[in-house]
């Protein structure tokens, strides 16, 4: 039995798994989800619709230590692959990657080469997208203990959307051209630049 462990909703991953489920009837997946968006639930719905035979498990991100020993590989999508080989992806991916490394589970990133970017970033804090902090303050769509945040000048609720996974946690990038290591990201970018496919400006 093959256990694939995947994190967050991604159209590429959905297609990959739908294909794989046709060829491997015994495939099973573990979906990891996080707050506040719970995108994994959407992924779960889509997967069940597209692959009726697939057996699915679903856990929250703080239980990854519990389920990681069951996984044979981890598949994630990406938001961008940066020029220094770091993978920018949905918040929580770096945690899953470090746990995969601990249990020696291959961590594979499925990513089309148009997502390769010529900018660089070594940690998630430098540049990121901020989500609505209200989403984090609400608990199960109800106001939590922090709903009176306006009256608490010392309190901040930070809802960042992406994180950057260091290349040493990534086993390989699966692209439409080949399976490559993260360190080859600049090569892909250079080749694409030669054919004017990639925008030259680093912060376009």
């Amino acid at each position: 039995m093959l256990h694939v462990f995947l994190f967050y909703s991604s159209s590429v991953i959905l297609k990959v798994l739908t294909e794989a489920a046709k060829k491997h009837p015994k495939l099973s997946v573990i979906i990891v989800d996080s707050r506040p968006k719970f995108e994994g639930r959407e992924m779960l719905r889509k997967l069940m619709r597209s692959c009726p035979t697939l057996s699915c498990s679903y856990v929250f991100i703080n239980s990854i230590s519990y389920v990681m020993p069951l996984a044979t590989k981890v598949l994630v999508g990406a938001y961008a692959v940066l020029a220094n080989g770091h993978v920018m992806s949905r918040i929580g991916t770096a945690q899953v990657a470090s746990m995969a490394k601990t249990y020696n589970v291959p961590f594979l990133v499925c990513c089309e080469t148009y997502k390769f970017a010529s900018r660089m970033q070594t940690d998630s804090y430098v540049s990121n997208e901020l989500g609505d902090s209200k989403q984090l303050m609400n608990i199960n769509n109800r106001a939590g203990p922090l709903s009176d945040i306006a009256s608490r000048p010392n309190l901040h609720v930070l809802n960042i959307c992406y994180d950057v996974t260091p290349p040493d946690y990534v086993t390989g990038l699966i692209t439409e051209t080949a399976v490559i290591p993260c360190t080859s990201a600049p090569v892909v970018i250079r080749v694409k630049q030669q054919y004017n496919i990639v925008n030259m400006k680093p912060y376009a």
Partner: peptide
């Protein structure tokens, strides 16, 4: 916050991102 400590709340998924 009631004890006047500057506090930031993050989700369980942001541990790695904030650790730096």
């Amino acid at each position: 916050t009631e004890a006047d400590i500057k506090t930031t709340v993050v989700s369980d998924a942001a541990v790695f991102a904030m650790m730096s």
